[in-house]
């Protein structure tokens, strides 16, 4: 068949792999790496401005402090990639923490308590998923409802009282390390690696991106988009349960009051990580770097002696700036 002056270039014979030049010329690449680049820049600036910043002890403290947010952010990323949002994340973590605390307070073994904490998280994820995927309630509303319900349940279950938990297991978890890697960091790293693998190397990941990218088209190709959305919320809920274990270990108590900054920061980290809030495109590493970036920002500003009151303003600025940057690139 004739192919002279075809308007499009012919397919290169060996295009099975993507060259680095092709990768670097894709704006998507730069959007995904915004957080990493910004993180590197921040580390250099803080390193110069405050010698204490790059000390081994401080780096370790930052990484441990970031671990919780990283885990929550990975959960949030999966939901946002489907085109949804999980506003209940911080409340779910609190509620799962209270379940953990109550099991221990009633003499249950710590292993069972941790397991039930994760199940408590999955339960909220299940409710979110059912409301969104089968109830066809907008994500925003459904998870706003569970945000409120989960924080209420946390108060009811605990009578509003924090429960102090004395557990060598949790103490080990919070303070111990494997070689140079604190357990917290190790767990967060594993979550990021597994999340990345799930998103880019499994069929589920492709179907998740397809669902978020164009749900109608995905359905037309036979993808069960409702099931995919449910799975994303389950993942987020389960990870909130895991985060609850870490949170409880760190403060040594099950705290019934919700710290909403975790919710806001998880969404901020996802935005910093270059994930589209409309769903369908993004990475896991980007948001994880975003979570690290937010933690580094707060840590560095504290070291520089900036009043705590200014820190949320700076974080807000960083997020809006990142969003503008992404918009400009796309």
């Amino acid at each position: 068949m004739e192919q002279s002056n075809t308007p499009v270039t012919a397919l290169p014979a060996q295009a099975e792999r993507l060259s680095w030049r092709e990768r670097l010329s894709d704006p998507e690449f730069w959007i995904n790496w915004t957080a990493v680049i910004a993180l590197a820049v921040l580390v250099i600036i803080f390193g110069i401005a405050s010698p204490a910043f790059l000390s081994f002890g401080n780096i370790r403290a930052v990484l441990v402090a970031a671990a919780l947010l990283v885990i929550l952010t990975v959960g949030q990323t999966f939901v946002i990639l489907t085109g949804g949002i999980d506003l209940s994340l911080a409340s779910t973590m609190t509620w799962a923490g209270v379940v953990l605390g109550q099991v221990v307070a009633h003499g249950g073994p710590i292993g069972l308590a941790c397991l039930l904490a994760i199940i408590a998280g999955l339960l909220v994820g299940l409710i979110n998923g059912l409301l969104v995927a089968w109830g066809r309630i907008p994500d925003f509303i459904a998870t706003l409802g569970t945000l409120s319900a989960a924080s209420g349940a946390a108060l009811i279950f605990s009578n509003g009282e924090p429960v102090t938990i004395v557990s060598t297991f949790l103490l080990q978890l919070a303070t111990g390390s494997l070689g140079p890697l604190p357990y917290f960091v190790l767990i967060a790293l594993l979550v990021v690696l597994l999340g990345h693998f799930l998103l880019f190397y499994t069929r589920f990941g492709t179907h998740l991106l397809a669902t978020g990218g164009d749900a109608e088209a995905a359905r037309a190709m036979g993808i069960r988009t409702a099931g995919i959305k449910l799975a994303a919320y389950l993942l987020a809920g389960g990870l909130a349960g895991l985060a609850a274990i870490l949170f409880t270990a760190r403060i040594g108590a099950a705290e019934p009051a919700v710290d909403t900054s975790y919710l806001l920061n998880s969404v901020a980290a996802v935005v910093l990580g270059g994930v589209s809030l409309f769903g369908g495109r993004g990475t896991i590493a980007g948001p994880a770097a975003g979570a690290l970036l937010l933690t580094v920002l707060v840590n560095g500003l504290t070291l520089l002696g900036l009043s705590q009151f200014y820190q949320p303003v700076v974080v807000g600025l960083a997020v809006v700036l990142a969003a503008l940057l992404v918009r400009y690139w796309r």
């Binding site: 991106l209 397809a210 990218g213 164009d214 109608e216 088209a217 995905a218 369908g280 495109r281």
Partner: peptide, 8 residues
């Protein structure tokens, strides 16, 4: 509408 995913 082709049922293709633009971002893939």
């Amino acid at each position: 509408n082709l049922a293709m995913i633009e971002d893939l």
